[in-house]
């Protein structure tokens, strides 16, 4: 009974991720892209759990979701620190 509901929620999440992808591709600065990637990562963590419910194997997918949440955080921090060392984040100026 709840399966169509969670399926709908997952579809909505994927559509929202596509909208966030507009910001990731469109820029205008590198930091906007990092932000877009971070937002997509947060949604992916939730989406993994929804997929777990749909496959009726939440116990397996929750471990993947934990790993993904950790990775997403580390990746954002790492990318931010990396671009902090460069002179500019505006690609047009280079």
């Amino acid at each position: 009974m709840m399966m169509p509901f969670f399926l709908g929620a997952a579809v909505v999440l994927v559509l929202l991720m596509m909208l966030s992808l507009v910001r990731t591709i469109g820029g205008p600065t590198v930091l906007d892209r990092i932000l877009g990637g971070n937002v997509i990562g947060t949604k992916t963590t939730v989406l993994l759990l929804l997929i777990g419910i749909l496959y009726e194997d939440l116990g397996m997918f929750v471990d993947i979701a934990i790993a993904y949440a950790l990775l997403n955080f580390i990746a954002t921090l790492g990318a931010t620190k990396y671009f902090l060392r460069r002179k500019s984040v505006h690609e047009t100026e280079e």
């Binding site: 930091l31 954002t76 984040v89």
Partner: peptide
């Protein structure tokens, strides 16, 4: 993460 991104944006000068 938000804090880190904001601070680096201010330092870089967005």
């Amino acid at each position: 993460a938000t804090h880190a991104i904001t601070e680096s944006a201010l330092i870089v000068g967005v």
